[in-house]
Design a protein around this nucleic acid. Structure first.
Lengths: 216, 216
DNA sequence: AAGTTCCGATACTATTGAGTATCGAATATG
DNA sequence: CATATTCGATACTCAATAGTATCGGAACTT
């Protein structure tokens, strides 16, 4: 999918390979600075209210520098969304407190949730692009929610192996609840993913649905 | 808060009371036609891509007719969102199939969900207005999700009275799951609230969390 | 009938903003 | 050193559009 415009413009870095060897070299570190500015402004103002001048000013870059990297505003934003995918959840250091309840709580520490919240708000800023770019919704979900679903799944799978929860529980479905509800809460309700919310979800929904013994 | 512009323009119908008794009467039925067009276009294109000319054309109205009713585009859209609140769920005729599972499925009939989905997509279209109008998110939640939460709560409360579910189940929390997940799915994932989704949620999450006996 | 306000339609204006062009300075190659 | 490409900055073009003005006709009051 993609290529909504049937234009001569192509994704990012139109001339990546055929760049001359002469002259000053392109400073690739500017890309990240610009895209970070894009994410910030998307979260604050949304796609349509974000102007290219705002982006350039925030990144302390000239507009030529921006347009040398991306052929259009939409290309730039698409790239910014793709960039959000990285380093969302640390799969190599999943919590291991001994109980599923403790692990779920530890996974959703305020610190790790905060960054996701900021990126989710950026996703809300591109909501109006979703109809033109069908892949964008998947991209956002894959980048921001799916990793949390995976982490939840892994924790629940281990708990099942330990015999902590019912062996026939549908953890594929239940692992989606907490990340999705947190996303909904952030985007639509504009309410924080705080401890009270987490406790209600874990103790009153997830653990009972998983058939865990009540130990609270 | 509000009054983003500090202009002389005020909310809707600036001269509702002090309208002259002379001349042709204003046709109030045009309001609904115009606002319906607004909802349609919001769902299709979003706030920023929706032009006043599109609205007038879709409603077969002149722009003068539109601006005689609302002082600005944002006033008009705010009014359109408020209008979505009505007739969302029929509380006087909640389903009564005998089982909670049957009732939950009956409540979420494709027909009744369809209209909500359309309105939810309109809400996604005004996502970029949420930062300027903080009350708008609440308005959308109250109009489109809260009624479904109430209906879920009522059905679960009856089931508890019948002894169909655990007496200590936290139905205040659990009644939020299905409507919120459906909203998330529609808005962020752009996927339909179909029967497979409902069955997975009801059978694998809600009923187990409520401590209902497995009867499937 | 006279006067007023509504209707849909359309022309107009004033502003905003994406994308382009160009600047002088900096950094690279040969 | 000559040439080419980068950089940030700024000026420019041109299309889109919110809001206003005006039209001829319809509907209402007195």
């Amino acid at each position: 999918m993609a290529e909504r415009d049937s234009e001569k413009h192509y994704p990012a870095d139109p001339d990546a390979t055929l760049r001359s060897t002469l002259g000053r070299k392109r400073d690739d570190s500017r890309d990240a600075v610009i895209l970070d500015a894009v994410i910030q402004i998307l979260a604050e103002s949304g796609y349509e209210r974000m102007t290219m001048d705002m982006v350039a000013q925030r990144a302390k870059a000239g507009k030529a520098t921006v347009y040398r990297r991306w052929a259009s505003k939409s290309d730039m934003v698409l790239d910014a969304v793709k960039r959000m995918k990285r380093e969302q959840v640390d799969f190599d250091n999943l919590p291991d407190t001994g109980s599923l309840r403790g692990n779920l709580l530890a996974l959703s520490r305020p610190q790790s949730v905060e960054e996701t919240e900021r990126k989710l708000r950026a996703m809300a800023g591109v909501a109006t692009m979703l109809s033109q770019h069908p892949g964008l919704a998947d991209l956002g979900h894959e980048a921001l929610v799916a990793p949390w679903v995976e982490a939840n799944y892994a924790l629940m799978d281990r708990a099942r192996t330990r015999g902590e929860i019912a062996p026939d529980a549908d953890i594929a479905t239940i692992s989606q609840i907490l990340p999705s509800m947190a996303a909904y809460r952030t985007l639509l309700q504009h309410r924080p993913v705080d401890r009270a919310f987490l406790l209600a979800m874990i103790d009153e929904v997830l653990l009972p649905a998983l058939g865990a013994e009540r130990t609270i």
